[in-house]
């Protein structure tokens, strides 16, 4: 569904992407994980037509993003990192304009808007101005907007950034629901738990390069199953263990108190890059 071949992007002398290769299957929920500045948003901007690629190729549902630009754009919906809704217009009007941009007929637009507003639980807010909505509602509205033309691929660029834990979990449930309807989802995030909870496969992106792609379980298993963090000269050192008993024995031998936790994707990222994701 999404194919990226040897993708490079440079801004003057800065190389934002250095040869990205990816293949994401139909219906897959794929997470692109990396720290700020790793190239996550640049990849999405190129795939959605907001930026030009420097070299390489990318295809959305078989359509080349540069040579068949319009067809490629029809395949995807975008939820950008920054909420880009018309604040002075109503919830309905925002969705209606988007439907018009995708050349949907009036009847079809009306039906789809009604359905989607129910789907994202905003049906009671249809005639409210966007500026009257909360942050979580705006985020759900942006997701509904991205879905109005029934895209096969949904790009979610840090969809829960700045939202509190409760709203974040509601958005996760919504993303899962969208995937279950058969939509391919490309998610960028720097929230470890988001990638772990949602993604079927994860790519680690560091300084414009993919350093690993696999299922979250396989990526994490390389480090063991359990971890203990300890503060060592203003830094946190982590010790990994295959079994819980092994970790407990280690703690018993120490004089300080430690917290035992399960290994997460952050540990896997740290092991591969020497950096933290957040």
């Amino acid at each position: 569904m999404i194919r990226i071949e040897d993708l490079y992007k440079s801004y003057n002398n800065f190389h934002a992407l250095k040869g990205i290769n990816l293949h994401i299957a139909k219906g897959e929920l794929f997470a692109y994980l990396g720290p700020n500045g790793a190239g996550k948003t640049t990849t999405i901007r190129i795939l959605t037509g907001l930026a030009r690629l420097t070299s390489g190729n990318a295809y959305l549902n078989g359509f080349h993003i540069e040579q068949e630009k319009r067809k490629a754009k029809e395949q995807s919906g975008v939820v950008p990192q920054l909420i880009n809704l018309d604040q002075e217009l109503t919830v309905f009007e925002n969705l209606d304009i988007h439907g018009r941009l995708f050349q949907m007929r009036a009847k079809e637009r009306g039906k789809k808007i009604h359905k989607l507003l129910g789907y994202v639980e905003l049906d009671q807010r249809k005639d409210n101005l966007v500026k009257q909505l909360s942050g979580g509602m705006k985020r759900r509205l942006v997701i509904a907007r991205a879905l109005i033309h029934s895209p096969r691929i949904l790009f979610l660029d840090e969809p829960t950034v700045g939202l509190d834990a409760n709203i974040r979990r509601r958005i996760w449930a919504l993303i899962k629901k969208i995937q279950q309807s058969g939509t391919t989802i490309f998610l960028t995030t720097h929230y470890i738990e988001e990638a772990e909870f949602l993604a079927e496969r994860v790519a680690f992106l560091n300084e414009g390069r993919i350093v690993a792609i696999d299922t979250p379980q396989r990526l994490m298993s390389g480090q063991g199953t359990w971890a203990i963090d300890r503060v060592d000269d203003d830094d946190i050192k982590t010790v990994y263990f295959k079994a819980r008993e092994e970790a407990k024995q280690f703690i018993a031998m120490q004089q300080e108190s430690f917290t035992l936790r399960r290994v997460n994707l952050e540990d896997a990222f740290l092991a591969l890059t020497g950096k933290k994701v957040k």
Partner: peptide, 14 residues
């Protein structure tokens, strides 16, 4: 300010 231009850029319009 509102980044709405990006919505037009991502839409299949010339």
């Amino acid at each position: 300010y509102w980044h709405i231009f990006e919505e037009f850029q991502a839409a299949p319009i010339c």
